[in-house]
């Protein structure tokens, strides 16, 4: 159990049930959000001011990497690639 887990578990005893419910809702919405990103053109902001566009492919559960397709790098297009989550600061995509 990570320190972050512990911190997020915080709260008084009687709040535990309500906190679990809220946490479950937040996690579910996050997972559905990642699912909604699949196949969409996505803009990634990486460390050191690097910005790249790709098609969102998939994310792993442990938040290690994002799999992307058609990654446009300064040196050309990679058909498929992995971006390390530690390199990524943020990413964005459009829903219609």
């Amino acid at each position: 159990t990570s320190p972050r887990f512990q911190a997020l578990l915080g709260g008084r005893e009687e709040e535990v049930g309500a906190a679990q419910e809220a946490r479950a809702a937040l996690r579910q919405r996050y997972l559905r959000g990642l699912a909604a990103a699949r196949g969409r053109p996505t803009h990634f902001s990486l460390r050191a001011g690097v910005r790249v566009d790709a098609v969102f492919g998939a994310a792993d559960v442990e938040a290690v990497a994002f799999q992307v397709d058609a990654l446009r790098t300064p040196l050309g297009v990679e058909a498929a690639a992995l971006l390390r989550c530690t390199d990524v600061l943020a990413f964005s995509f459009l829903l219609d």
């Binding site: 699949r38 690097v50 992995l82 390199d87």
Partner: peptide, 18 residues
């Protein structure tokens, strides 16, 4: 979600970038 990720990695053999 993990299944899709693993399947994509098996199929596409993506490399880390950078």
């Amino acid at each position: 979600m993990q299944l899709i990720f693993d399947r994509n990695c098996d199929k596409k053999q993506p490399k880390y970038w950078p």
